[in-house]
Design a protein around this nucleic acid. Structure first.
Lengths: 351, 351
DNA sequence: AGCCAGTCGTGAACCGGTAAAGTGCTGATT
DNA sequence: AATCAGCACTTTACCGGTTCACGACTGGCT
């Protein structure tokens, strides 16, 4: 029941204790622990021995206060909490980030915020307060209001999004425009003429890019039924949007979704309305997590390696922090993975 | 192109600048910003005005250094990064935590570790270095080696796991034993006699509890085919375990899994081996994320609200930090949600 | 011997706040 | 008139490190 043999009951051990035990000044201990010249190998040894005996390691907070930056990377996300738990994208993305952070003994500071102003204020606090050494910015909007204040802040940042959106921050991005175009061309090649798209919020940059590319490609192919619906990315809205599209007089024969959770919800709606996939309706998801392989039929998707995306983002951030990188960096374009949910429209087998 | 009008180009603004502008000492500013008595309303006003003008807010790092604890909660997870991205459990759990943290303007510090020693060392560093104000401990083992050192640390902690495992830390838990028993009784009632279980790592506490309850219930019902296999929670291992069970001479007619990702993998194996679910084989998942509703047939599961679980954990941690709670706290027991993957064994419709 | 350079280490200032003791003033009490 | 409580601040000492100017000692060179 007694506590393990500890030195002085209450007091916490500091650099001074180590210095005293090793018989040097605290400056020397600091030098030793930051392996910098100025202490002889013998003394260094003695200092480490003392630290080991006392179980001391430098106090990060104190360290941060005097100049050095924390081994902590900030990530604020402006989305509802529930969505975070349901969307496979974020967790895979975060797992990729963590994979790289862990290698360097760094941690991720995660925070959900309600709006972009709160997010901006948070980053300012994190940076000015030396809580983080850098940050990852996601979900860029057109003319994103976070850009000017964060630029002024001078914090190392890696932006996730197309360079046209990220206001000059070093960025990592996928070519959503090409992917969206590929999606449309694929469905058109199958014979679809009325193709719809269920996208994310209209203000969101990458949704906008996909929307524009979708429309442009439809026009280019001479297809005119290119209706698009904006949603908030959650399954329920995906279902509602799908229902709306399918109830319209000239209902689409194919729908492209902006993530897989909405595509899954869309598939359920199709079933509920007695439409068979892919004969009556083709569905194409985006991101491609395990979900897509589990539905019946499995969902075709624009797929990419989200874990790897996260890794690249984290690696880029370290480069930015070390000052060895400033440009933009593209990761592979999502590529079409055809599965059972896409096929020619109104195929012969239809009832 | 020019930076927005900022006071003195390089220097960061500190409490001293605010004090100077307001014409008071920095002590007064500190008092005002921690709304404590000792400053008149007029002066207080003047101080806030000055802070507003300079865009100053207290530096968290400096604040933490002198006593006060950070509004940051630590969570270390000792699992492979890839798994984190695939397992719906963790993200839903984290989303629940974040939901409560966000209400109080707190953040979650997340870190993946390789082993329990690294985890212990990390918590010590976080606590001694005043990086976090408390922590969430997960994945308890029998006689968990983290307990003694972390007890000695005195950090506010909430443990996720059965009180018999969590070494006296305030804990939040689900009754896995009852749930495991219910799972077995349900399958037995359907007529199954050879029931197997694909569990998590044998050292993991909650896997052990489920294993013991599984075995005890099997014995109680006079069933003897209760084989159990330990895995690492990933889909691939779930598939391998399932394959092993199904290839044995007296193969089980029902399998219970420890999470849903392995159950999904198990369903794929059944299909691959030409077994029909549930006629030839019943499958029962655990946790019950969306995955279970997407397979064909949908998976029956021991389901619970993981998001809510996370919320309760976070709330409990705040109570512990404030000293208003020390005991254990049970959240609802996972309850059986029957879907299409369970049914009587070898039913008439069988080929 | 005298000078210089280089190594090892010390001491004090500093990072940006908090906390507790101290100061000066006002107004009520005896 | 003297005492005293109470408010509104100011002063000063931390919190636990890092950094940098400076001193002491050693050894090589002329």
């Amino acid at each position: 029941m007694s506590a393990p043999a500890s030195r002085v009951p209450g007091r916490r051990v500091t650099i001074n204790d180590v210095a005293a035990l090793a018989g040097v000044s605290k400056g020397a201990v600091s030098l030793a622990f930051n392996n910098r010249p100025g202490v002889s190998p013998t003394t260094r040894e003695r200092i480490f021995a003392a630290a080991g005996e006392l179980g001391w390691s430098p106090n990060q907070t104190a360290r941060n206060l005097s100049g050095r930056r924390a081994g902590i990377v900030g990530l604020a996300i402006c989305r509802p909490a529930r969505l975070l738990g349901l969307e496979p994208f974020y967790m895979e993305f975060i797992s990729g980030i963590e994979d790289v952070l862990a290698e360097r003994s760094c941690s991720l500071l995660l925070r959900l915020v309600r709006d972009l102003d709160e997010e901006t204020a948070l980053y300012q606090e994190w940076w000015r307060g030396r809580t983080v050494g850098g940050a990852i910015l996601v979900d860029f909007h057109r003319d994103d209001p976070r850009i000017p204040p964060l630029r002024a802040l001078g914090m190392p940042v890696v932006a996730v999004g197309h360079p046209s959106l990220t206001g000059g921050f070093p960025s990592v991005w996928t070519d959503d425009a090409s992917a969206a175009a590929e999606a449309v061309r694929y469905l058109a090649a199958l014979g679809h003429r009325r193709i719809a798209r269920v996208g994310g919020p209209s203000g969101l940059g990458h949704s906008g890019i996909r929307a524009a590319a979708f429309e442009a490609t439809m026009a280019e192919l001479g297809l005119d039924g290119g209706r698009q619906v904006a949603t908030g990315f959650v399954g329920e809205e995906g279902a509602r949007a799908t229902r709306g599209l399918l109830m319209s007089p000239d209902r689409p024969t194919a729908i492209v979704y902006d993530n897989d959770i909405m595509a899954v919800a869309g598939a359920a709606v199709a079933a509920e309305m007695g439409l068979s996939v892919p004969d009556d309706l083709s569905l194409l998801a985006w991101d491609d997590s395990q979900l897509c392989r589990l539905t019946h039929p499995p969902l075709s998707a624009m797929s990419h390696d989200v874990h790897h995306f996260g890794e690249e983002v984290a690696r880029t951030l370290f480069d930015v922090i070390e000052g060895t990188r400033t440009g933009t960096h593209q990761v592979p374009t999502p590529s079409l993975t055809p599965r059972g949910s896409t096929g020619p429209p109104g195929s012969p087998g239809r009832v």
